[in-house]
Computed example of a mutant assay.
Amino acid sequence: MFSSGTFPRIVRQTPVVTDVKQLTVSTVQVAPRYYDTVVFDDSTDKKHDGWFIGGFVINKSSKRRPTRDAAMDDHREALHAARTEEPFPPRGGHDELCAYVSGMTSRCTCSNGGAA
Score class of each variant (00 low, 15 high):
Arg68Val: 11
Lys46Asn: 07
Lys63Ala: 12
Met72Leu: 15
Ser43His: 08
Gly50Arg: 05
Val57Gln: 05
His48Gly: 02
Pro66Asn: 12
Trp51Glu: 03
Asp45Leu: 08
Met72Ser: 06
Lys47Val: 04
Trp51Met: 03
Ala71Arg: 00
Ile58Arg: 01
Ser43Arg: 08
Arg65Val: 03
Gly54Leu: 08
Arg64Leu: 07
Thr67Pro: 13
Asp42Tyr: 02
Asn59Ser: 15
Thr67Trp: 03
Ser43Thr: 14
Ser43Pro: 10
Pro66Lys: 12
Phe52Arg: 07
Asp45Cys: 05
Pro66Gln: 12
Ser43Ile: 09
Asp49His: 09
Arg64Val: 13
Pro66Tyr: 01
Asp69Ser: 15
Ser62Cys: 13
Ile58Glu: 03
Asp45Trp: 01
Gly55Ser: 08
Phe56Trp: 15
His48Lys: 04
Arg68Ile: 13
Asn59Thr: 13
Val57Ile: 13
Thr44Asp: 08
Asp41Ile: 00
Ser61Cys: 10
Ser43Cys: 11
Asp49Phe: 01
Ala70Trp: 00
Lys63Asp: 06
Trp51Phe: 03
Trp51Ala: 03
Lys47Asp: 01
Lys47Gly: 05
Ser61Val: 11
Asp69Met: 12
Thr67Val: 08
His48Cys: 10
Arg68Trp: 06
Ala70Cys: 04
Asp45Phe: 00
Asp42Cys: 08
Thr44Val: 10
Val57Ala: 04
Phe52Gly: 06
Ile58Gln: 05
Asp49Lys: 05
Phe52Asp: 01
Ile58Asn: 02
Phe52Trp: 08
Gly55Ile: 06
Ser61Phe: 07
Phe52Ile: 07
Asp69Phe: 03
Asp45Thr: 11
His48Ser: 04
Gly50Lys: 04
Arg65Tyr: 00
Phe52His: 12
Gly55Glu: 06
Thr67Gln: 11
Ala71Thr: 03
Met72Ala: 09
Thr44Trp: 00
Ile58Tyr: 00
Arg68Ser: 10
Ser62Met: 13
Phe52Glu: 02
Asp49Ser: 08
Asp41Ala: 00
Lys46Ser: 11
Pro66Gly: 14
Arg65Thr: 12
Arg64Ala: 13
Lys60Thr: 13
His48Arg: 04
Val57Gly: 03
Ala71His: 00
Lys63Cys: 11
Gly55Thr: 03
Asp69Gly: 11
Ile58Cys: 07
Asp69Cys: 06
Asp49Arg: 04
Met72Thr: 08
Asp41Lys: 01
Arg65Asp: 10
Arg68Glu: 15
Asn59Asp: 15
Lys46Arg: 15
Val57Phe: 00
Ser43Ala: 13
Thr44Phe: 02
Thr44Glu: 10
Arg68Lys: 15
Asn59Phe: 13
Gly50His: 03
